[in-house]
Design a protein around this nucleic acid. Structure first.
Length: 503
RNA sequence: GCGGGUAUAGUUUAGAGGUAAAACCCCUGCCUUCCAAGCAGGUGUCGUCGGUUCGAUUCCGUCUACCCGCACCA
């Protein structure tokens, strides 16, 4: 058997396999599909559930400092005002009609150029550390081109969102340098709106949550008051989130409805957050490896200070080599006390915590490891997808870790026209089924049945043959990745599977 | 949102202005003592809406979805 590395898994192949085998379907496909939404089929929902279960077990059940939460998707609209999503979770965009380029209005700066109080034109610069100098140079060149004498008045840069309607026609496009080709800024809030109650007026507006994290902050006080938790501790939540993305793309990587697994880990303001941050990064990297992502496919993207959001002290993304490029899987941010302070201010409720150990009162800071379930699933599919050759025949294999494989094992009677073999196989299948999600298949040649399971990532095939009945009761266990076979007793089989799947 | 491309069975493809095909897959039966075997049978298709036409899956337009590039991704 020769192995080919899956160096260039193409997204097309993956999408095709997902659909063909029932992992993922386009949403509403019978009506032509619906951009940005996907459905998880029989195998996909098992895979997804296994990912979430593994995360919950490892991050919540197997730790002493974590508790869980399941908050509502629609929450009081004030939550999103406090969090900044109503104001800030939007990107006003500007298009240049001539060059077809698009800019974020808040990253595009302009200023009227005036000499001795009279405006001779406008200049535009893109956001940059030296934008003031660039603008002044542009203004200078404008003055010379127009042959105007005199000293330039000081330039006052404003971003494009502050432009007056009458100025739109005067501001030059950064691409062409000519005025008049920029559109007015178009506002785009990424939150889905809905209405709560019978009235559909402005007072009834509510939002589908764009992240699960705010549900955690909103319940922080409840959990501190009732949960017998002590800082440092974390609250974990898994749930759907919704963002009205401008351009969903790359299959389930960026969709409008997706599922998050988020932790808010509350720490003392005096704690060594740099070290705790590093510990979380390691914890999360190890976890990805434990569910089957190769360590060498994972990288860290450390955000530079100037790239950080205003509420973050540090942020490191864990990225993965997806078919469409090296992209973010999980963000691990140090958010300080921004969110709790915002909610304290907007709700008027104290978010202070009394620390018994230090006898101090404070609002805790947080470290936020936040990842997408769907992205994790896509990463696992990408990593698992392989094409092998077995005896000259190409086969497609999903080399899932047994922990997350949709089916843990498949049971086959070697032939189906010998009733005792079939009976014995069904009996074993039913025994296994009490414990794991397993599959039974009696149709077709045994080799075909193995290949079918290879393609959906079932790690083990168990075959009942004549020796099982006539000799020692042993069964054949066939390994998906090596295709090697081992005979073992049913008792040995159970302890083998237990070790491989549940450890 | 802009530009380009694509859309025929579950998959990969063929096809012609006049009853739409093949291979593989899938299902059933027979056979089969470990890697997609064989035999017999079977299900299933022109993305949407509109126009031209006696007749459109084919020509034209619309919409939708997908792919590539640009832009975007607190």
């Amino acid at each position: 058997m020769s192995l080919k590395k899956n160096v260039s898994t193409s997204m097309d192949e993956l999408v095709g396999l997902c659909k063909r085998r029932g992992f993922i379907f386009p949403s509403s496909e019978i009506y032509g599909g619906y951009n940005g939404f996907y459905d998880y089929g029989p195998l996909g929902c098992e895979l997804k559930r296994n990912i979430k279960d593994a995360w919950w077990r490892d991050m919540v059940h197997r730790r002493d400092d974590m508790v869980g939460l399941d908050s509502s998707i629609i929450m009081h609209p004030s939550i999103w005002k406090a969090s900044g999503h109503v104001e800030g979770f939007s990107d006003p965009m500007v298009d240049c009609k001539e060059s077809k380029l698009r800019y974020r209005a808040d990253q595009l700066f302009f200023a009227p150029v005036s000499v001795a109080g009279s405006v001779i034109g406008y200049v535009t610069v893109l956001e940059a550390p030296d934008q003031q100098e660039l603008a002044e140079a542009a203004a200078d060149s404008l003055k010379r081109k127009q042959g105007v004498q005199g000293k330039l008045d000081p330039l006052v840069l404003r971003d494009y969102t502050e432009a007056q309607p009458k100025e739109y026609a005067l501001i030059p496009s950064p691409a062409t340098g000519k005025p008049g080709s920029l559109t007015p800024p178009r506002d785009f809030n990424l939150m889905f709106e809905t209405h709560v109650g019978a009235l559909r007026d402005a007072s009834a507006v509510a939002y589908l949550r764009p992240e699960t994290a705010q549900g955690i902050f909103a319940n922080y006080k409840n959990i501190v008051d009732t949960g017998r938790v002590k800082v440092p501790f974390g609250i974990a939540q898994i749930g759907k989130a919704f963002r009205n993305e401008i351009t969903p793309r790359n299959f389930i990587f960026r969709s409008r409805e997706f599922e998050q697994m988020e932790i808010e880990y509350f720490i003392s303001p005096d704690a060594d957050w740099r070290q705790l941050h590093q510990e979380w990064i390691k914890t999360r990297l190890d976890w990805f490896v434990s569910i089957g992502l190769p360590r060498e496919s994972l990288h860290q993207d450390v955000h530079q200070d100037e790239k950080l959001a205003h509420y973050a002290k540090a942020c490191t993304d864990i990225t993965f080599r997806f078919p469409h490029g090296q992209q973010e899987l999980e963000g691990i941010a140090v958010r300080g006390d921004f969110d709790l302070m915002q909610h304290q201010q907007h709700s008027g409720k104290s978010m202070e915590y009394f620390d018994e150990a230090s006898k101090k009162k404070y609002v805790p800071h947080v470290i936020e490891p936040s990842l997408g379930v769907d992205r994790t699933l896509l990463a696992l599919l990408t990593a698992a997808y392989c094409k092998d050759e077995v005896d000259g025949e190409e086969r497609t294999v999903l080399k899932f870790h047994p922990r997350i494989a949709p089916f843990k094992a498949a049971v086959f009677p070697l032939v189906k026209n010998k009733e005792p073999i079939v009976e014995r196989a069904r009996a074993l299948y039913q025994r296994l089924q009490r414990r794991w999600n397993v599959f039974y298949d009696a149709s077709g040649a045994i080799g075909r049945r193995y290949r079918r399971q290879d393609e959906i990532g079932t790690p083990f095939g168990i075959t009942i043959d004549f020796d099982t009945l006539e000799k020692d009761g042993s069964v054949t266990l066939r390994d998906r990745d090596t295709t090697e076979q081992t005979r073992m007793s049913e008792d040995e089989l159970f302890s083998f599977l237990e070790e491989k799947i549940d450890s």
